[in-house]
Design a protein around this nucleic acid. Sequence first.
DNA 1: TAGTGGTCTAGACCACAGC
DNA 2: CTGTGGTCTAGACCACTAG
Lengths: 240, 240
Amino acid sequence: MTRPISDALHARIRRDIESRIMSGQWRPGHRIPYEHEWMEAYGCSRMTVNKALRSLVQSGLLESRKRAGTFVAAPRFHRAALEIPDIRAEVEGQGLTYRLDLLSRDRRKATEADKALLRVSSGDLLAIECRHFADDLPYALEHRLINLAAVPEAAEVDFSTQPPGSWLLAHVPWTEAEHRITAINADPATAQSLHVPENAACVALERWTWIGAGRDDERITYARQLYPGDRYALTAHFHA
Amino acid sequence: MTRPISDALHARIRRDIESRIMSGQWRPGHRIPYEHEWMEAYGCSRMTVNKALRSLVQSGLLESRKRAGTFVAAPRFHRAALEIPDIRAEVEGQGLTYRLDLLSRDRRKATEADKALLRVSSGDLLAIECRHFADDLPYALEHRLINLAAVPEAAEVDFSTQPPGSWLLAHVPWTEAEHRITAINADPATAQSLHVPENAACVALERWTWIGAGRDDERITYARQLYPGDRYALTAHFHA
DNA sequence: TAGTGGTCTAGACCACAGC
DNA sequence: CTGTGGTCTAGACCACTAG
């Protein structure tokens, strides 16, 4: 007997509906009972029913159509929550010793290549190349651009010990982000840097970060991290 | 001037709070006004305020501590919503023609290897190898195991034209899932199958799917899909 | 047009963590 | 203790859309 997560009535209603969907009793497209009927079934107010249903709609398990009812949603893809930890936190979380190796740091006017990556039209930026180590084994190779128009303080920060990602996470707390995950073969320089054979498959994780509506000066940073494919895995989980 | 997504009062309150967090006006750890104060500020009831706050708590931007108040949450990692489309839908969504190539189909008792992958202790399963084509170019190579104890109907399905993922998505609608993304070098057979050079980097996407608490007979399927790294990218986005 | 979900109100009681 | 958020009620009006 597992202990219930929450005894709240709306949570019970939610779980009841969930289990009927997960058991296959209610298939995609099935119209579930009207909110009115749930009120009667549970002897509660409509707000309580509504709270349960809205929560399931937000999870993607249900969809509401005005005037028609609430239906079991037809899944069109697998959803999962991807939680990408800060590298230092991830390494230390595994009980390993983290070390940063700053390869280069360049403050410059955005080149054409920078502009394309950072998605700005002009301005100064900080370009950083660094390696992340876990117990003296290379963990990831990072190429990062920081938009100094958006984060001028970054120009004064010492990134020789503090990873740029950690600093940014703490100083530009809430952003929007887009991620792109691909696989690439390590070129000779990358291979040497990561201590992997030439052409070894690497996970390439790119991240674009900005604030708000996405104007030029709100672009925060671009990061490209390469992980040895045989030592690293991204994991994602779809909650119940 | 962008058109507002929703004019609902709780949505406006939500956006107001969001923008103060995203602009940096309220930093992690900051205690935002009490629900009582929001009521007065907006001249609305507490339920309306609560709806906005709960929504932000669920997004991870806020956290509530009873008796203390509601605080801006400290981001500990980058969150993103990963939406992995059904391959057929994804291919057709790009305006390409989808074709399935069933390489093998084997109904068998679970071998030791199967058990480890599917995470069951025994039982019959369906093992499928197939290739997905987009306009006659190999798009992905798939190895799939389906637990027949959980999905007996799968034994009768014709998977020579219908991709197993699409069938399962439609017939075992809602499950829990775990994903693992790595990069691998194509071995000779894989390279030939995907029309890529030997050792080409490929994105390996593994997915374990089950229902409910996760007992043996509730394990649904294991899938491993290999995508040519230079033709494929997974994308994930963190919503505002 | 009838009836659904979407939204909102003006209260209420409670558990609980901080003071 | 006090006051917070968590939860819930018994109504209400509205927009929308399916029939």
